[in-house]
Design a protein around this nucleic acid. Structure first.
Lengths: 180, 180
DNA sequence: CAAACATCCTAGCACTGTTATATAACGGTG
DNA sequence: CACCGTTATATAACAGTGCTAGGATGTTTG
C-alpha cells in the first residue's frame, strides 16, 4: 500500500481542521476524538500529531478559523449597528459548535494581549466599527450583549420566540444616548 | 477495616459536591476526575456512583448549588440595578470555575422549560427584579449583558482595568429610557 | 544500485468514566 | 448465641481517551 503523496503541511492542516469542524457541528465536540477524526480522514492517529502538537492545538486552530469567518461575516454586513448585530447572532446560531470552540471551550488563544492573533482582532473590529467611541468601552459592552445573547440563546436559557424583541431592545439601548 | 457509618445520602451528596467544587476552584474542572475526587474524600470511585449516577449528574449538582448561591448573593444585594449588577459580576469573578459549571460546561440543566429547577428560577428573578418590564425582554437583555461581561472578562478577552467603566455604561444604557 | 530519508502504521502507556463481582460489617430472627 | 440477608464497601476489570516510541514501507538522493 503506497503512502499517499504527502500534501504540504498547510493544506493537510486545513483538511484536518475542516473535518474536525464538520464532525463537531454534527456530533458535538465530545465526539471529536483523535481516533474518530483520524478514522474519518482515513489515516491513523499519529498522522494528526504530525500536523498539530496535540488536540488542544487543533481545537485552537478550529477556533481561529471561526474568528476568521466571523470577521468575514461581520465585514460583509452593513456597517449599521442593527445589521452587524443580526450578522453576529446569525453566525453564532448557524455555527453553534464553532462558536462554542471560540468562546466556551478551554482555549489557548490570547485575546486582550500583545500576541492576539490577527483574526481575533479583525473579528472584534467588526463589532467595534459599528459602535465607535473614544476609548472602546461602548464596543466592549456591545460585544458583551451580543455574546451574552448568543450563548444564552444557544443554551436555550432565554424565552424562545422573543429573540427579535431582545435584539431590537439591545440595539435601541446601545444606540440611544451618546453616553457619558 | 470497618465500613464507615454511612451518613444519609443527602449529606453525603453535599460533601461530594463541596469537595468537587473546591477541587475545581483550585485545579480546574479537568482535574475533577472520579478517582481524584474519591481519593480526596478517602473513598473509592464506586462510592461516588452510589450518590450520583455519573460525573455529569455530579457536575449538574455542583452547578445547581451555584445557582442557589447566586440567587442568595443577588438577594442580599440592594434591589437597585447598579448594586445587583455589581453583585452578579462579583459572584462570577469570585467563583470562576463554579460560574463555568453553571454556564459554559455541557450541562443537563433545563432552563426556559417547564422543569426548570427552582434555584435557576430564583437566580434569574434576582436579575429580573432589578429590571422589571411588562414582558421580561429587558430583564433578558440585562442578563445577557451581565453574562457576556462575566464570561468575556473571565476569559481575559476585555481590556483589564476598564471593568468599572463597562459596568457604569451598561447600567446607564439599561436604565436610560423606558424603552418601546 | 545502495544508502539515507521521510512517512506511515502497529502497538503500547497512562489515564479516563463506568460497572460487575466479591468481601466485610451490620441488624434482625430463630 | 448462631445464622442470614441487606447494605456498603473495595477490588478489578472494560472500553475508550490523548499521546508516543519503534519498526516497516516507500521515495529520493549519492
Amino acid at each position: 500500500m503506497p503512502p499517499r503523496p504527502a500534501p504540504d503541511l498547510d493544506s493537510r492542516r486545513d483538511l484536518i481542521v475542516r473535518t474536525a469542524r464538520h464532525l463537531a457541528e454534527s456530533d458535538g465536540w465530545s465526539a471529536v476524538t483523535m481516533r474518530r477524526l483520524a478514522g474519518d480522514l482515513g489515516v491513523t492517529q499519529p498522522v494528526l500529531y504530525s500536523a498539530f502538537p496535540g488536540r488542544q492545538a487543533l481545537l485552537d486552530a478550529v477556533a481561529l478559523t471561526g474568528f476568521t469567518d466571523l470577521a468575514a461575516a461581520l465585514g460583509a454586513a452593513d456597517p449599521e449597528p442593527p445589521a452587524r448585530m443580526r450578522a453576529y447572532l446569525r453566525f453564532a446560531a448557524e455555527h453553534p459548535r464553532l462558536y462554542e470552540a471560540m468562546f466556551s471551550l478551554p482555549s489557548g488563544l490570547a485575546f486582550a494581549a500583545e500576541d492576539t492573533p490577527e483574526p481575533l482582532r479583525r473579528a472584534f473590529s467588526g463589532v467595534r466599527d459599528a459602535f465607535p467611541d473614544e476609548d472602546g468601552t461602548r464596543a466592549e459592552v456591545a460585544w458583551s450583549v451580543l455574546h451574552g445573547l448568543a450563548t444564552l440563546e444557544a443554551g436555550a436559557r432565554l424565552t424562545p420566540g422573543r429573540a427579535q424583541a431582545r435584539l431590537e431592545l439591545a440595539h435601541r439601548l446601545l444606540t440611544a444616548g451618546p453616553s457619558t
